[in-house]
Design a binder for these strands. Structure first.
Lengths: 354, 354
DNA sequence: GTGAAAGCGCTAACAT
DNA sequence: ATGTTAGCGCTTTCAC
């Protein structure tokens, strides 16, 4: 006797299609999955049944059997940092093209958060992970995801060498930027560093220091910080309270640069007349005429798209496939925050009291 | 004879737990789902078996049977608009607390995109939708989601009256802001309107117009636009090319206000000395000392949290439950972009050529 | 080339 | 209070 339970799905099932086409469910399944072992006529008959019934296979049932959900996670430290929405959007678009859905997770650079997300998502049947903010959770991610081919790192390069990544040449970008400032005559250059656990930040710092060290007369000034706008403010406070002051400042990323700019404005310091300023990332906000910030363009959207492609390529390959490593060349974006006064004729907006 | 197929899941199944605890699978299922009909001793025995085996129920198998995946979608027009990351973060946090996972979808305010996303996600077993950017896709969403209790609108109020929403009082907020500017002596006030399909934008415009109309001598000037920074620039171009110029400008949201500010800066117009400027939303960027923008705070994070709560409450309730409507009071945030010159002593940063 | 049948891991009648 | 059992919709041997 048939049970009375409600159906899980709305539309027709594979059984309905089979009945309607006069074949077995296995044949329908073969057609749906593009299996070669199907006669052309049969295939056509099944396909017309599928479209006339409006049949759509259930990803849930499929996942129960195959273990694949076409769900991937994008791990970021903080989605409200403008770099990540730009990245997320491109990741999401590229994933959609491949038939994948993206879940965005804010880790706050805390391993516990990473673990909480992945624990849940893996049980939901997560297929893979794009981690744009590896920090101390690198081992956790790899352990939880089990197979390295289900993971790709981007933005920050991982420590391990057996796992794929798509990053930009942070070291080279920082070198180029530093060289540019040196060519402009700057010698005392401040660098607002990011946290030590973030490899993109340390690579940028290293690039800066290397160039400074081999330039006679160059005086690097490094302030430790993190990725918050506040870090820029603190650095400015420190440098401006006691001399000698830097004549140019590089921030570890554009967000920190904007915080730096605010702090400089509060002290009535003009940019670039009193202090030149540059960021790193190339977020859209940096191009705003209000900021017009010199920065190192990471080609954020391209990085996101490539990370997705690498992950999907790995899904297809053997589980012991060699890791894919891509290092994209960044591009120096010169804007008026470093380029002398002619373009910045008007007055800078002041900081308000607070 | 047992088949050789590989297991879908890694860990132990409900059968393993049942065997280990010496009970049936239904009893284990009852314990897992906190069903009351279980003896205390049995429950304890099962629970210890669960923890000693490290058993985790499979959401996929569960979804196949129950039709519930604990997956919800957050629909936004564009995640790179800073309003949405702030909203998304709060939605995501609150959803996580309830055991739900959030998928963020960019609709670009295009119905076709909404449909594409929902089509796919529904097949994935989507439980519900929070739509933060209803536009012309309102009917599509409702039709696809089938039951109104699986949908809640936020940020933009829907047209239909049988569906739940959590929005802020855009009309009232705009009134308050306009009144404030009038009290400051402004009479020619420009309003950069948003698109006609977005109800938050039209409500703000209406609030503005209503107050202006009943104020003698007030001259409202409305420029049509959208939610891009460019809209602000176009409006400024138009107004400044031919008089009479507005002495104050209200932008439909903070992003447009920032665009407006840029355009004013390009024309060497000081804010607020030459033109006062206000936005709407209360995004964090508006609080930056560089912008220090007067705006109407929508309490973005609170709105997101509440939207989630309404949705989850509906999941539990009867499918014919009355819609839940929440209208949150916004708060006027007065900053130096409208508050006279004393706080803005220094020079404003100029626009660069481009 | 095609079909029959055994599950994937779980929930929910129904029976006891 | 607990167990038995029939599926949820699909994929995948294995036979034919």
């Amino acid at each position: 006797m048939p049970s009375v339970r409600r159906q899980t799905r709305r539309g027709p099932t594979i059984i309905d299609v089979a009945r309607s086409a006069g074949v077995s469910v296995s044949t329908v399944s073969r057609v749906v999955r593009d299996h070669p072992d199907v006669n052309a006529d049969t295939r056509a008959r099944v396909q017309s049944a599928i479209s006339s019934l409006g049949y759509r296979p259930s990803p849930i049932a499929r996942a129960l059997v195959s273990g694949e959900t076409r769900l991937i996670a994008l791990l970021v430290s903080d989605i409200t940092n403008p770099f990540y929405p730009q990245l997320a959007k491109s990741v999401e678009q590229e994933a959609k093209r491949g038939g994948y859905t993206v879940v965005i997770c804010n880790t706050a650079d805390r391993t516990a958060e990473t673990r909480r997300y992945l624990d849940r998502l893996i049980r939901q049947g997560l297929d893979g992970v794009i981690h744009a903010s590896v920090a101390r959770d690198e081992g956790t991610v790899l352990a939880l995801m089990n197979e390295a081919r289900r993971v790709v790192f981007t933005n920050r390069r991982p420590v391990g060498d057996s796992v794929s990544y798509v990053v930009s040449d942070n070291h080279g970008g920082a070198e180029e930027l530093t060289q540019h400032l040196l060519r402009q005559g700057h010698r005392r250059i401040g660098f607002v560093a990011g946290p030590a656990y973030a490899r993109n930040a340390t690579e940028r710092l290293d690039g800066f220091l290397e160039v400074m060290e081999k330039t006679s007369g160059a005086e690097p000034m490094v302030a430790s910080g993190d990725f918050s706008a506040d870090a820029g403010a603190r650095a400015v406070d420190e440098w401006m309270r006691r001399g000698p002051r830097p004549t140019a400042i590089i921030a570890t990323n554009d967000s920190v640069a904007l915080g730096t700019l605010e702090a400089l404005a509060e002290r009535q310091l003009r940019v670039p007349a009193d202090v030149a300023l540059a960021g790193f990332d190339g977020v859209r906000l940096a191009a705003s005429p209000i900021f017009d910030l010199t920065t190192v363009d990471q080609h954020i959207e391209q990085m996101g798209r490539r990370a997705v492609r690498v992950l999907l390529r790995q899904f297809g390959g053997p589980s012991n496939g060699a890791p894919i490593r891509e290092v994209l060349p960044p591009r120096l974006l010169l804007r008026s925050s470093t380029e002398g006064g002619s373009k910045r004729g008007a007055t800078m907006r002041a900081a308000s009291g607070h």
